Amino acid sequence: MPRRLLQRYLPHPDALRRRRSLRVVGHLIGNPSLWVLTRRSVANAFSVGLFSALLPIPFQMLVAAMGAWLARCNLPLSIGLVWITNPLTMPLIFFGNYRLGAWLLDTPVRPAPDRISTQWIAEQLVEILPALALGSLVAAVVTAALANLAIRLIWRWQVSRSWRQRTRRRRRSREATQES
């Protein structure tokens, strides 16, 4: 079942509440509805986390935490998924978002330099910002919706598969006891 797999890797809320750096938000972290692993809470957590990850804004983890709190979905999954845009993947993802936005706005794409740097981004920011913002928003919404749908379908498939296996085991067990 997907729940067992996720529980293996998620931190325990009490361990996080005891951390000195998180004591300020300890009452929020301790909310049980933010730690539930159901099909709905996990699917919504994927939506919130991926949506936050694809936005070119600072404090993405804070945005994901607030989104998880508002949507009452799984907090650690939402925050953890933000790290899809880490320092290694961020330039590629945001350049892809920029290209998507430029395509949607029907503007020419500025060629990327051999090496993307913060200096290049700062120089080009005023000109690329509308395309980056639109592309990021569209990519975030589409990715969040597809992730939500995919998680719900995968979860449902896994549960039905588990039920079928359980039914087969019970049938075999019954047949074995009847033959004895």
Rank of each mutant, 00 (worst) to 15 (best):
L37K: 07
A43D: 00
A43H: 10
A43T: 05
N44F: 12
N44G: 14
A45H: 02
F46K: 05
S47Y: 04
S47W: 04
S47G: 10
G49H: 14
G49Q: 14
G49R: 13
S52T: 06
L55Q: 10
L55H: 03
L55E: 06
P56N: 02
P58N: 11
P58C: 03
F59Y: 06
Q60T: 08
Q60M: 02
V63P: 07
A64P: 13
G67Y: 11
G67I: 15
G67S: 00
A68D: 03
L70K: 15
A71W: 11
R72T: 13
R72D: 06
N74T: 08
L75E: 02
L75V: 03
L77M: 11
L77F: 08
S78V: 05
S78N: 08
I79H: 06
I79A: 07
G80L: 09
G80M: 08
G80S: 15
G80F: 08
G80T: 11
L81A: 01
L81T: 02
V82H: 07
I84C: 09
I84H: 06
I84E: 09
P87E: 01
P87K: 10
P87N: 10
L88V: 13
M90H: 07
M90W: 04
P91M: 13
L92G: 09
L92A: 14
I93K: 02
F94D: 00
F95T: 15
F95R: 15
G96L: 13
G96R: 10
G96H: 10
N97W: 01
Y98K: 05
R99Y: 01
R99S: 00
L100N: 00
L100W: 05
G101L: 03
G101R: 07
W103L: 14
W103M: 12
W103T: 13
L104F: 08
L104Y: 10
L105Q: 11
L105V: 12
D106W: 09
T107Y: 01
T107M: 07
P108L: 07
V109E: 02
V109S: 02
R110D: 10
P111Y: 10
P111D: 15
A112C: 11
A112V: 13
P113D: 09
D114F: 12
D114R: 11
D114N: 08
D114K: 11
R115Q: 07
I116D: 00
I116H: 02
T118I: 12
W120R: 09
I121Y: 05
I121F: 07
I121P: 01
A122T: 04
E123R: 12
E123G: 09
E123C: 04
L125E: 05
L125V: 14
L125M: 14
V126W: 14
V126G: 04
E127L: 07
E127A: 15
I128G: 06
I128D: 00
L129V: 06
L129S: 01
L129T: 13
P130D: 02
A131H: 08
A131I: 06
A133Y: 05
L134K: 12
L134W: 09
G135H: 01
S136L: 09
S136I: 10
V138K: 01
A139Q: 12
A139C: 01
A140Q: 13
V141Q: 11
V141G: 10
V141L: 15
V142W: 05
T143N: 01
T143G: 02
